[in-house]
């Protein structure tokens, strides 16, 4: 064994000694970087919201977005139910819950697209004001994350349909779930600071 290989092996063993799964550890580190990413956008939005309040904020519809929030919360529930299903070895249950998650995620994006088009008709655009810029940047990036989650969910569903995942081997489902729940948490925060406060 070369010295490099021995060092790598030692590092790997150290990770195991901490009781950490490397795929999950990598996912959590990725999510930590995502916290910083959204943190910067949220801080900028709050700065403009407090220091340059816009009357355009009154055009936002709490009931519509509240319903969309229910949809995303429900999708988090279906993801965790899918994980519970595959932990019991029920691949069919996992596939059904993943399909539901995809439908709910798509419904959320459809609701967001409707909201965006309504605001555009009212003259709130990406270029119209500081409010428009910060609002569409923040919610748009979140929507892109939901879309990425939909692609990931579809890929996980396809792998499950091809016979992957079992009660003993479901790490791929678990890390997808971590990402999806994180996107849900970000929306919980955005719903509060954009629409409620």
């Amino acid at each position: 064994m070369t010295q490099d290989a021995a060092t790598h092996s030692g590092t790997f063993a150290a990770g195991r000694a901490l009781g950490l799964d490397h795929l999950k550890l990598g996912t959590w580190l990725f999510l930590a970087s995502e916290v910083m990413f959204f943190g910067g956008l949220i801080a900028a939005f709050l700065h403009y919201k407090v220091n340059s309040p816009s009357p355009q904020a009154g055009l936002l519809s709490v009931p519509l977005v509240g319903a969309n929030t229910f949809v995303l919360l429900t999708s988090s529930f279906t993801v965790v139910q899918g994980l519970a299903a595959i932990r019991r070895g029920k691949r069919g249950g996992l596939m059904a819950y993943l399909a539901l998650t995809i439908l709910l995620g798509a419904a959320f994006l459809a609701g967001q697209a409707y909201e965006f088009s309504s605001l555009y008709r009212e003259g709130v655009t990406l270029q119209s004001s500081v409010f428009g810029s910060s609002f569409f940047t923040l919610t748009g990036f979140h929507g892109m994350h939901v879309f990425t989650g939909l692609v990931w969910a579809s890929s996980t569903l396809l792998r499950a349909a091809r016979g992957h995942y079992s009660a003993e081997d479901h790490g791929g489902v678990e890390v997808f779930g971590l990402y999806w729940h994180f996107v849900d948490i970000v929306w919980i925060v955005l719903f509060t600071i954009i629409y409620l406060v």
Binding site: L25, L29, V35, G39, A43
Partner: peptide, 18 residues
């Protein structure tokens, strides 16, 4: 608890920054 620490540390930084 390592996952918790990894997640909460940047959250704390973001709260202070905000």
């Amino acid at each position: 608890r390592y996952y918790l620490l990894i997640f909460l540390l940047p959250v704390a930084v973001v709260v202070v920054f905000g």
